[in-house]
Amino acid sequence: MNAFANIRTIMKRELSGYFTSPIAYVFLVIFLLLTGFFTFTIGNFFERGEASLVSFFTWHPWLYLFLVPAVGMRLWSEERRLGTMELLLTMPITSWQAIVGKFLASWLFLALALALTFPVVITVNYFGDPDNGVIFAGYVGSLMLAGSYLAVTCMTSALTRNQVISFILSVMICLFLILAGYTPVTDLLTRFVSPVVVDVVAAFSVMTHFEGFQRGVLDTRDVVFFASVIGFMLFTTGVIIRNQRAG
């Protein structure tokens, strides 16, 4: 199929773009150091005395808040800054092929970063007898979470040719997606508005849907939620890219 070939070509270029500069390696090292730091120091991995990766996954929504926008901020803003967007969109491909190709490349890169955390899985299996099904669900959830943030970043990067603005906007939107369902915030909200409203707001939060995965529950509704965020954000990216040219 033509569409797949085009998406693959775009993905390949985007991925090799990460690895031809030192940025990719710097990112991977920072990611691994931070996950290690949060898990073992702040998360009290060993002191908890339980064979699970709760202290590992709990931090992901916060860790990704900065790392994912950093990975995705250049996706479209760089195309606009260099003027290559004009080349790309006058090629015989559709804009959604370009959007999906770029998104998948960055998502794959994040998946690689996540895969490199495998030593924690080995560690926890060495010291105890964890439920590896729960760990697997946690990884799936983490990947979906990263994908959702990334789709947000994709959208913000289409808005501006400035990567820094794209980064800041993305962090702000993702922060909202966290806080809407972050327990301290929802507890505070229940004092002012009715619990129904709080539930509705929380339903839009990644936290609400990420928790299930951490408990080892692969709930379709949670999967659908993350898939919808990704779909909606990529669709919006397409609308933005089209409107910019419509004048």
Binding site: K12, R13, S16, L82, G83, L87, T90, M91
Partner: peptide
């Protein structure tokens, strides 16, 4: 050829031309 001849800064000439050729099928 767009105005100002844009190109992907991080690619080599060879990589860029191969990329464009691939998009051309």
């Amino acid at each position: 050829l767009p105005e100002n001849a844009p190109g992907y800064a991080d690619m080599t000439v060879n990589g860029f031309l191969n990329f464009c050729a691939e998009l051309r099928g």
